[in-house]
Design a protein around this nucleic acid. Structure first.
Length: 203
DNA sequence: CAGTGGATCGTCT
DNA sequence: GACGATCCACTGG
């Protein structure tokens, strides 16, 4: 069980990184409570060249500024006024590449996760969907910009995901991105019950 | 099941 | 002033 080294986040191959993050553990410590889950679904957002990205065409705003910093930080923002979405920033400075974590399989601190979700017992929907990921891990917009070597981290516990278990598809909910909505930038663990979307997308 | 619509607010134009 | 990188409850078949 070791944190991914800071060098992992300096790649500019955001698509490969999205795939490599599958099977890793996303760990948080919030108010002393440690919770973690295995990443089973991700999406790559390819910065300036990607119409689906907040930083398309090098757009810089206060919100997206953290994307332009050196990789290895959390990028968290509010979506639909309700959901906080967690992203991993990548690349050396000035390349706004990020990976959105869309689903986790709960591993550690299930009781705390249930309390945060307001659910009585675990089921396959607990860590399914990007809004639920942040909800059960206690991640909020206040975490945007924090290093992934601290209270939020991504760890390798030796779990090896067989390559044939990795599924690829277009991204979800980015219809506004035109042609870029069709790019095969979504990665998921085939057959995993925590993967979001219709059941057929889990195969 | 599939399809629909309401919730809810920071961010950018 | 409009709009989401969503979720869930509710409808109808």
């Amino acid at each position: 069980m070791r944190k991914l080294p800071s060098s992992f986040y300096l790649t500019d191959n955001v698509v490969a990184a999205a795939r490599d993050l599958l099977g890793k553990l996303l760990v948080t410590r919030v108010n002393g409570v440690v919770t973690s889950g295995r990443i089973v679904e991700t999406e790559a957002y390819n910065g300036a060249a990607d119409r689906a990205s907040h930083s398309y065409n090098h757009r810089r705003t206060p919100r997206t500024e953290v994307q332009y910093a050196k990789g290895g930080k959390a990028y968290v923002y509010l979506c639909y006024g309700i959901h906080h979405l967690f992203n991993v920033t990548l690349a050396p400075e000035d390349q706004p590449l990020v990976v959105l974590v869309r689903a986790i399989e709960p591993v550690q601190g299930i009781a705390a996760m249930l309390a945060r979700a307001g659910k009585p017992s675990p089921d396959s929907s607990l860590g399914r969907g990007p809004g639920n990921v942040t909800r059960i891990l206690g991640i909020g917009v206040t975490h945007s910009g924090v290093s992934l070597q601290g209270d939020i981290s991504i760890c390798d516990d030796g779990f090896a995901l067989p390559p044939e278990k990795i599924g690829v598809s277009p991204r979800i909910g980015v219809d506004y991105a035109g042609e870029d909505a069709l790019l095969p930038y979504r990665f998921y663990v085939k057959g995993n019950a925590s993967v979001s979307g219709p059941a057929k997308w889990r195969r």
